[in-house]
Design a protein around this nucleic acid. Sequence first.
DNA 1: CAACAGTTTAGAACAGTTATAATGTAGAAA
DNA 2: TTTCTACATTATAACTGTTCTAAACTGTTG
Lengths: 139, 139
Amino acid sequence: MLNNSQYIEKLRSSGLRPTKQRIKICEVLFNTEKTFHFTINELVKKISKSTNDKISLATVYNTIHAFKNKGYLKEIPINSDQSYFDTNTSHHHHFYDESQRDLIDIDEADVEPVKIYTRIPGKKIKSVEVLVKVEDDKS
Amino acid sequence: MLNNSQYIEKLRSSGLRPTKQRIKICEVLFNTEKTFHFTINELVKKISKSTNDKISLATVYNTIHAFKNKGYLKEIPINSDQSYFDTNTSHHHHFYDESQRDLIDIDEADVEPVKIYTRIPGKKIKSVEVLVKVEDDKS
DNA sequence: CAACAGTTTAGAACAGTTATAATGTAGAAA
DNA sequence: TTTCTACATTATAACTGTTCTAAACTGTTG
């Protein structure tokens, strides 16, 4: 929930030029009460609903990748024909309802911290992500 | 580690006609000491190395999906431009080294069972998968 | 063996994503 | 403010993994 000048500052401070496309995308992504999940396709629709100046698809992809690299977005590891992103960059996990193709946050407090008793020599852990797949309970 | 007649039986008992393509794919996938991970591309190469009769790409896709549906393979949820499959269908988790694009099993005993204290009403849990992303440790 | 449903096949089609190269623009310097 | 330049945007082409199509083939059943 920031205003434009704060997005401009945020972009500039991370070495991204605050273009009007990037500011608009910031608004769509971050000017919300709650965080949310999205695919590029859904984001494009959301953008076009909220502005008359269309943003090209390539720019959306570029911007999302830039934001992901800067840590403003997380990509959610999931088997899907398209990539899912999350505006919630805090440490948390997900339910995935494959039938509805619906992603739901699992609050960090609702998952016992995952302990891993083995390591890969020479590598350090970057992230630990839990994906809980659910299906309709017909019992 | 089965011989052909056992694969024929396995296929037939799950309602899949034991065609020579499927039997060959069974051999490549299951006639090994250790389980392994693969992409369709890698599998196609493996198949063509081990036989002179080429199997069409469409058949490989069909067969892998059939095997996955029958529970002979698991798909590994990962953000990648291609799907990863695992011949190890027991419950276990993975390290993913993004720089090498390399998947490594985490033995079930090496992960504290993941406890989830929340549920989605009307849905039951189908699987719980942990993906640990690692990177080179430059410290 | 005949008949049929299931399977394989090559290639076309498709969807998501990335690359290209021309045009535009933010920011710095004069 | 004007000029300059590196960075961004754009439309579109290209690319990649996967799915579809429809014709030919084959395992199974009677």
